[in-house]
Design a protein around this nucleic acid. Structure first.
Length: 841
RNA sequence: GCCGGUGUGGCGGAACUGGCAGACGCCCGGGACUUAAAAUCCCGUGAGGUUACACUCGUACCGGUUCGAUCCCGGUCACCGGCACCA
């Protein structure tokens, strides 16, 4: 019989669903395992070939855990609020809810087609009112604790989407979604106080098992730096406060710089002699997009404040104050003390404006450039700090400032509070009303969920108001506090809201009284293993840790961290069809003929398609036409082949290109398994004598490799085992072992052959086999024999041979004897059970 | 500029803690089966060299440590990802 994957896959998917084979049980005595993948955004395009990589990986792990006897929770859901759906709905005159419903149906079908062992009774959908009720509830708790607050601040405004973006959504100064220019605008926004949790978000990384690069990236993103806050007196009377990581260089502060948005500037206006120039510069800075600001960073600009000067607290000298956009309003205090001798930016600015540059740490040449690499230097020109090493000077000056009330030690973070409002329709309504008398008031919890009303038009307005603002009936309400007239908040939450706690809802998806019951949270949390993309490291991953910590403080969850372990997969890339190496052979030849040389051909391709043509491996994109659709692969080769190939194609953690050709190899592998077991093999369930050691080794290798996410080598080991079975006919026991090991990777074929063989139950939930270390070794093994560190030959020795026996065997080898002739053996190195190295003279 | 990562055959990639480089797969070549092709099965496949051995070279490049280096150390180059005027 032929391996009819379509029939088999459909058959087993139905059986699994009917038998609820993969359902998690709440609160059993069994040990639990909670495996999590990032739930997809159900886009109109359907599942991308990038989705199956992390999903298959965690499915393999979940399946193995189940076979090992764990009570496994392996859920899936949909992160369905968001812009693309809304934009699509606007364009096609549909309701976003209907678009979402359709897309979820499509995704569900595709995910089922791939045979994932998700618990389909626990699906969550962030757009379901029963779900977002709790998203709103968490927001209200934050509001009550002062963590959610409204602030007017410069925000990133996408000129095309007409929406305020979080800092994280601005990439290289342009909108992450549409690539349009982003400018700054003053707007009143809901903010979440994530910065209050900055230190804990750093510290608690020590207690979790995340891959190192994730920890490092999060730490860098939070950007802790230690230094001091210093208060400078000014001739205006107000103090100008700055943050510096180098208080030791205070004697070298020869001028100061404020950001153009600094709030003192307004107050100082009457004192400024060049008010027009200052205002002009401020206006220009506001108009510039972030992109322009950073692109033109080489050339420093600025205006001196005429009429106000500052006093350096240690030298007592008056120094000028400038405004310049190289100082950011959003970091530190929005103003700096400039030390041009030891800071590159200050140096450039000082050179341009002819300001004095003073050396305060010895060792560099401040005429040529700022001497910044001076943490190990010694202070000069610094009064009472002279002669001290930098570290000591930092301490001394900080104490000196503290003693006089002129400053204090201070920690600063790059992380900023989270802009939480969106002027869009398709998001969770923010459950707050504004009352002229009472201010911002939370709506009562009993009124949750605050339903997203139907509106006639989802279009945003140029003024940046949410479409909800047009709904007078909905907007006008009464204040829950005083009963007077009030208006609802019309902004909605960002997409990151729903995904910040979804893993809790899976635990108890139908609970009407709480995000999830305390008892079930206690049993299931924390998530044991969470795999997801590196692109979510500084956004979703950080946000959800923050929300979880907040819930921990409320007593809703029992642990400080949501995820015990975090791993990350590499992207699936595509071959660039415009790269010379990837052209079909005929086209290559033709090009060689017309262009003369390969170099000329490559050059021709670059001219035709741009620089991109130089890269053989690129991101998949519609415009290049190298996008692989999982449906097509499943149709042609089956889900088991797709699963196997996607795990086999390279190191899971690294990016790897999809190579259509290589899929066949995995199909062939499954065909060969089919051929071995399509007819019942009778006899004992012991391993055959000939294959026993290979089976034990395979059990060890596959098990270890799954734990280490080295799926590619696990599959290679299985292929090797199958090849072995072709050399030496497998027993019934050999077949059983193979099917068990294959089952997590290719569960359909494993269950079908399991049934054909007449084994009990299903391979999917069969006990994971044990191996016996002692039985993994053959009776005889081959060891390497080196002379002078170079391999000369190999010899066979009994597995239990001791060092002396290895040397004896090596020196008895004919070839080695020949090489030793006329020489003396000066040294012998033996690596236990592996190698003998003879040093001759 | 800063942080992190990577560099191994024609290709994707293996290699324990410093111990036989190239597992496994793709491509390619040869053979068996077939009227034939496909599929399947078997064999070969880093480069040079030889009838065949022998032997030599080979993990981006230069150097070091070591009996022995893809792995450790110093330096150089290239590419990828993230951050980027963060005081």
């Amino acid at each position: 019989m032929k391996y009819d994957f379509s029939r088999i896959e459909k058959k087993w998917q139905e059986i699994w669903e009917r038998e609820k084979l993969y359902a998690a049980e709440n609160g059993t005595g069994k040990e639990k395992f909670y495996g999590l993948v990032e739930f997809p955004y159900p886009s109109g395009e359907g599942l991308h070939v990038g989705h199956p990589r992390p999903y298959t990986a965690m499915d393999i792990i979940a399946r193995k855990r189940r076979m090992q006897g764990y009570n496994v929770l392996f859920p899936i859901g949909f992160d369905a609020f968001g812009l693309p759906t809304e934009n699509y709905a606007i364009k096609n005159h549909m309701h976003p809810r209907d678009v979402t419903k359709r897309n979820i149906a499509r995704f569900t079908e595709q995910l089922k087609m791939l045979g994932y062992s998700f618990d389909w009774d626990r699906v969550v959908d962030t757009t379901d009112p029963e779900y977002y009720k709790w998203t709103q509830w968490i927001f209200l708790q934050m509001f009550k604790k002062g963590l959610a607050y409204k602030a007017s601040m410069p925000v990133n405004w996408c000129t095309s989407c007409k929406v305020v973006l979080a800092n994280e959504e601005v990439v290289n100064g342009v909108c992450e979604r549409c690539g349009s220019e982003v400018v700054r605008r003053e707007k009143s926004q809901w903010m979440l106080g994530i910065t209050k949790y900055a230190q804990r978000l750093i510290d608690d990384l020590d207690d979790v098992d995340y891959i190192e690069r994730v920890k490092i990236q999060q730490k860098n993103w939070i950007g802790r730096s230690t230094g001091a806050e210093v208060r400078f007196r000014t001739t205006a009377g107000d103090e100008l406060i700055v943050f510096t990581t180098r208080p030791d260089t205070l004697f070298g502060a020869t001028y100061m710089v404020m950001s153009p948005e600094h709030e003192l500037l307004k107050k100082w206006e009457p004192l400024l002699e060049n008010i027009e120039a200052v205002r002009g510069y401020q206006a220009e800075a506001a108009r510039k997009s972030d992109f322009e600001r950073t692109e033109l960073q080489k050339d420093k600009t600025g205006v001196e404040l005429m009429g106000v000067r500052a006093v350096n607290p240690v030298t007592g000298g008056e120094i000028p104050i400038y405004i310049s956009d190289y100082v950011l309003a959003t970091y530190g205090t929005g103003a700096i003390m400039a030390v041009p001798g030891h800071d590159t930016r200050d140096w450039q600015f000082a050179k341009k404006f002819g300001l004095p540059i003073v050396e305060v740490v010895k060792g560099g040449d401040i005429e040529k450039e700022a001497f910044t690499d001076c943490e190990t230097g010694v202070m000069v020109n610094s009064g009472f700090l002279d002669g001290m090493p930098v570290e000591e000077a930092k301490k001394t000056i900080t104490e000196w400032l503290e003693g006089r009330g002129l400053g204090s030690a201070k920690v600063n973070y790059k992380l900023r509070d989270w802009v939480f409002s969106r002027q869009r329709y398709w998001g969770e309504p923010i459950p707050i009303v504004h009352c002229d008398r009472c201010g911002y008031v939370a709506i009562p919890e009993e009124e949750l969920p605050l339903m997203l009303p139907d509106v006639e038009s989802y279009e945003t307005t140029d003024t940046g108001e949410s479409p909800l603002a047009h709904m007078d009936e909905w907007v006008n309400t009464t204040c829950p506090h005083c009963g007077g007239p009030a208006k609802r908040e019309t902004d909605t939450m960002p997409q990151w809201a729903g995904s910040s706690w979804y893993f809790l809802r899976y635990i108890d998806p139908k609970n009407a009284d709480a995000p999830a019951s305390k008892e079930n949270i206690g049993y299931w949390m924390p998530v044991d293993w969470y795999n997801g993309g590196m692109e979510h490291t500084t956004l979703h991953l950080l946000y959800s840790r923050f929300w979880y910590k907040f819930l921990y403080d409320l007593g809703v969850v029992p642990t400080a961290e949501p995820y015990q372990k975090r791993t990350s997969h590499g992207m699936i890339l595509g071959l660039n069809p415009h790269n010379f190496a990837n052209l079909p052979a005929e086209e290559q030849e033709e090009l060689l003929k017309t262009c003369g040389s390969e170099e000329a051909a490559r050059h021709h391709l670059v001219e035709k398609f741009g620089e991109m043509a130089e890269h053989p491996i690129v991101k998949m994109s519609k415009s290049l036409g190298n996008v692989v659709n999982p449906d097509d692969v499943v149709k042609e080769f089956g889900a088991d082949t797709l699963r196997t190939y996607i795990m086999f194609l390279g190191d899971f953690e690294k990016a790897a290109p999809w190579q259509a050709n290589a899929v066949k190899g995995c199909k062939r592998f499954l065909d060969r398994i089919w051929n071995l077991a399509e007819e019942r093999v009778d006899g004992s369930e012991d391993y055959s004598a000939a294959n026993e050691a290979d089976v034990h080794r395979a059990i060890r290798k596959v098990g270890d490799d799954i734990e280490a996410m080295k799926f590619n080598t696990a599959i290679a080991a299985l292929m090797a085992l199958v090849n072995r079975y072709y050399e030496s006919k497998p027993s019934r026991g050999d077949i059983k072992a193979l099917l068990t090991l294959v089952s997590p990777f290719a569960p359909h074929i494993a269950d079908e052959l399991w049934e054909i063989q007449g084994f009990d139950g299903h391979a999917s939930v069969a006990p994971w086999p044990d191996y016996d270390e002692a039985k993994t070794v053959e009776a005889e093994k081959e060891i390497a024999v080196q002379v002078g560190g170079k391999l000369k030959t190999t010899v066979k020795v009994p597995a239990d041979a001791d060092d002396d026996a290895l040397v004896a065997a090596a020196t008895a080898d004919e070839k080695i004897m020949r090489l030793m002739e006329g020489k003396t053996l000066v040294r012998t190195i033996v690596v236990k059970g592996r190698l003998v190295n003879l040093i001759l003279k």
